[in-house]
Computed example of a mutant assay.
Amino acid sequence: MPLDIDGFKLRTVYRFKPRTLKSVLSAIKLYDKFLSENGLEPSVESLALWLDSLQRQGYKPLTLRRYADCVRIYFETMMIPVDKDMLRAVLKRFPYVINPIKDYLTEEEVAKLIVNTKNPIRKLVYAIQYTYARRLSEVLNLRWGDINFRKHTIRFRILKRREEEYATYHLEGWIEDLLKKYFGEKHHSNKKVFPVTKEWIERMFRRDLEKAGVKVKGRRLTPHVLRSSRATHLLRRGVPIDVVSKYLLRHKRYETTVTMYRSVMKEEIAEIPSAAETLQISHVS
């Protein structure tokens, strides 16, 4: 039985961004082709067989996990009854690989970037992204209705969630001053704060770093580094990792934060003084 790809597309067209939907549909079409060629029905068993065949063809584990998640979304959306325990077992075979943070900006470098960026939109995007450790898309999704100058709050829609979820933070004084200075206070609540594209910010980021005197050669630096840099700086200043994980980064799983920032934690652990030093014991007989 062929998959109802058109029906799935209609039900999810508003759930995903166009590029994401295109990737999901691409994976589902590959699964549909496998079912047709082998005379199989959509099920957890056929999903496992398909993933095994792709693995033998040399597909990477992360790609297989993404494909598996796309099919899982199809099962859920089209309400296809499957054994959830079996599905979890299949997904567990292809866990997501979370890479630890390898590069970040120092506090001095972030300050140089924000102070020396002349374009007011990019200056504010960098400042807000770093201050609240948000993803670039979350900053660019800001509407004026998300900023309350009277209550001094700023609200972000958290991405990577199936249902709408928002995070509200205190609007820091210097961010508020910059917003008022460059854009004023009165705007239509549904109007975007930053009417620019993600691609434009990404394209200009390295240029702004270079102009600010920050070394970029040999470093993988994208705007997302502002988010990881903020988390790294807070961890090094002694903010508990569970606070950084739940309140700032809004990671769904605590283990994600630990895995990504374990290198920072190792450095902090290495700086823990010995018990003999803290007890001021030089010799015990």
Results as ranks from 00 to 15, higher is better:
residue 88 R to V: 13
residue 182 Y to K: 14
residue 159 L to F: 11
residue 130 Y to C: 02
residue 169 Y to F: 01
residue 91 L to I: 01
residue 163 E to Y: 13
residue 173 G to A: 11
residue 93 R to A: 09
residue 167 A to E: 12
residue 124 L to K: 03
residue 182 Y to E: 11
residue 140 L to D: 00
residue 167 A to Y: 01
residue 139 V to R: 00
residue 187 H to C: 00
residue 158 I to E: 04
residue 137 S to I: 10
residue 171 L to M: 03
residue 140 L to I: 05
residue 147 I to K: 03
residue 88 R to P: 13
residue 170 H to F: 14
residue 165 E to F: 08
residue 177 D to Q: 15
residue 82 V to C: 01
residue 112 K to S: 03
residue 107 E to S: 08
residue 133 A to C: 05
residue 144 W to S: 00
residue 159 L to K: 13
residue 138 E to F: 07
residue 160 K to N: 07
residue 163 E to T: 15
residue 164 E to C: 08
residue 157 R to C: 09
residue 142 L to C: 07
residue 112 K to N: 09
residue 86 M to A: 14
residue 150 R to H: 10
residue 181 K to G: 07
residue 85 D to R: 15
residue 87 L to F: 03
residue 162 R to C: 08
residue 83 D to N: 09
residue 115 V to I: 13
residue 146 D to Q: 06
residue 118 K to A: 06
residue 127 A to F: 00
residue 141 N to A: 07
residue 178 L to E: 09
residue 163 E to G: 13
residue 144 W to K: 02
residue 186 K to A: 12
residue 98 I to M: 10
residue 97 V to C: 11
residue 137 S to V: 08
residue 95 P to V: 09
residue 133 A to Q: 00
residue 117 T to V: 06
residue 100 P to L: 05
residue 159 L to Q: 15
residue 97 V to F: 14
residue 95 P to N: 06
residue 159 L to A: 13
residue 178 L to T: 08
residue 115 V to N: 00
residue 125 V to P: 01
residue 140 L to N: 01
residue 157 R to V: 10
residue 186 K to R: 11
residue 149 F to S: 02
residue 153 T to I: 10
residue 178 L to M: 15
residue 163 E to M: 14
residue 138 E to G: 08
residue 135 R to P: 02
residue 180 K to A: 15
residue 133 A to L: 02
residue 138 E to V: 07
residue 128 I to A: 05
residue 165 E to K: 12
residue 157 R to Q: 07
residue 97 V to I: 14
residue 154 I to M: 04
residue 109 E to F: 01
residue 82 V to P: 05
residue 83 D to H: 06
residue 170 H to I: 11
residue 127 A to L: 13
residue 95 P to R: 03
residue 85 D to T: 15
residue 108 E to Q: 01
residue 88 R to N: 15
residue 87 L to W: 08
residue 162 R to F: 08
residue 166 Y to C: 10
residue 96 Y to D: 13
residue 93 R to Q: 12
residue 134 R to P: 09
residue 92 K to S: 12
residue 104 Y to M: 00
residue 188 H to Q: 14
residue 153 T to A: 04
residue 159 L to P: 03
residue 125 V to I: 15
residue 184 G to I: 05
residue 130 Y to S: 00
residue 95 P to K: 08
residue 104 Y to S: 01
residue 185 E to T: 12
residue 187 H to Y: 04
residue 89 A to T: 14
residue 115 V to G: 04
residue 125 V to D: 04
residue 133 A to P: 01
residue 139 V to C: 00
residue 129 Q to I: 06
residue 182 Y to C: 10
residue 181 K to L: 14
residue 129 Q to L: 10
residue 148 N to R: 11
residue 116 N to P: 05
residue 123 K to H: 08
residue 160 K to L: 07
residue 158 I to N: 00
residue 91 L to F: 09
residue 122 R to K: 14
residue 165 E to A: 15
residue 128 I to S: 03
residue 143 R to N: 09
residue 155 R to I: 04
residue 173 G to F: 04
residue 104 Y to C: 05
residue 94 F to G: 02
residue 102 K to N: 13
residue 90 V to Q: 03
residue 169 Y to K: 05
residue 167 A to H: 06
residue 100 P to C: 04
residue 147 I to S: 02
residue 133 A to K: 01
residue 143 R to E: 03
residue 169 Y to M: 06
residue 119 N to H: 10
residue 101 I to E: 02
residue 106 T to F: 05
residue 141 N to D: 09
residue 175 I to F: 02
residue 141 N to P: 05
residue 142 L to T: 03
residue 138 E to I: 10
residue 164 E to A: 15
residue 173 G to E: 06
residue 177 D to M: 12
residue 186 K to H: 05
residue 131 T to N: 06
